[in-house]
């Protein structure tokens, strides 16, 4: 988080709204995300947090509003005015998306090494030895032993699959990673290990992250800042420990008091 005061925002979100017919998905969301910042979007099921995440990651066009992203060349571009080719290139190089269900983010029928190497090959790397070397290095960083490099993710446990998915996303050194309940559905001990690893990678690589979670403990451990959503609206936002230690809105107080311990 150093030098953050000298930097300009990476992502600027203005009035993002998404309707499903008459129903509100998310409404009038504004925020800015700075380089190296981890933002948690919390709220219960149906609060609009996943809708918002999908709008931000260009997987779902908003009904209204604008989302601007600072490209690697420093220019600020409206995501929904990018050509499809530019957007897809962005998604597989400068961005990552970690799905709750690893099978949605991995190619289950090709080896772990190929899963990690795919993005490299997609940007034109054509040297098998180097691709494999990079894949080996990344598997090591996500604590998957190198002798599993030629195994399919189908043979991996849930925690390993999730770690593989993370390696696959980070191999091109993205600047922004979206995460949708990355620890959902994992055992508590597996969760702890994954969270710890994510925390380390995020700070080592200076990643900006937008993470959707209903688990306030995850938000506490990983995020710098929290947005609380309810009925499609952002009702409270601020520094993570401020929102969790001194919640202001009735709903946030309810959320915080409903958990065992954070």
């Amino acid at each position: 988080m150093s030098d953050q005061n000298n930097q300009e925002p990476l992502l600027q979100v203005h009035g993002v709204t998404r309707y499903y017919g008459d129903r509100i998905g998310c409404h009038d969301v504004d925020f800015q995300l700075w380089p190296g910042e981890v933002l948690a979007i919390v709220g219960e099921s149906g609060s609009g947090k996943t809708t918002l995440l999908n709008c931000l990651s260009t997987r779902l066009a908003p009904t209204a509003g604008a989302i601007e992203y600072r490209m690697r060349d420093g220019s600020m571009r409206n995501l929904y005015e990018l050509s499809e080719a530019e957007r897809r290139l962005l998604m597989r190089t400068d961005w990552g998306f970690v799905h709750q269900n690893a099978a949605d983010g991995l190619r289950m029928t090709v080896s772990a090494g190929a899963n990690v190497g795919e993005r490299l090959m997609a940007v034109g790397q054509r040297h098998y030895g180097k691709i494999r070397e990079t894949a080996t290095d990344w598997l090591d960083r996500v604590e998957i032993t190198v002798d599993r490099i030629d195994d399919d993710p189908r043979a991996f446990s849930g925690g390993m699959r999730q770690r593989l998915q993370i390696a696959r996303n980070l191999v091109t050194h993205p600047r922004l990673v979206f995460m949708d309940e990355p620890t959902g559905g994992l055992d508590v001990s597996v969760q702890a290990r994954l969270l710890d690893m994510l925390r380390r990678l995020v700070s080592e690589l200076g990643l900006s992250v937008i993470i959707v979670t209903h688990d306030l403990a995850v938000a506490r451990l990983l995020s710098h800042r929290i947005m609380v959503m309810r009925h499609g609206e952002v009702i409270e936002t601020g520094l993570t420990d401020q929102v969790l230690d001194d919640p202001r809105e009735p709903y946030t107080q309810l959320l915080v008091s409903s958990i065992l311990q954070v």
Binding site: M1, Q4, R199
Partner: peptide, 22 residues
């Protein structure tokens, strides 16, 4: 918030009795 985070890194330290275990 990000200004506070930056202050916590170089300006204000906090010594408490409880360790947040990493």
């Amino acid at each position: 918030p990000r200004q506070i985070l930056s202050l916590r890194q170089d300006t204000i330290g906090y010594v408490s009795q409880f360790l947040r275990v990493i």
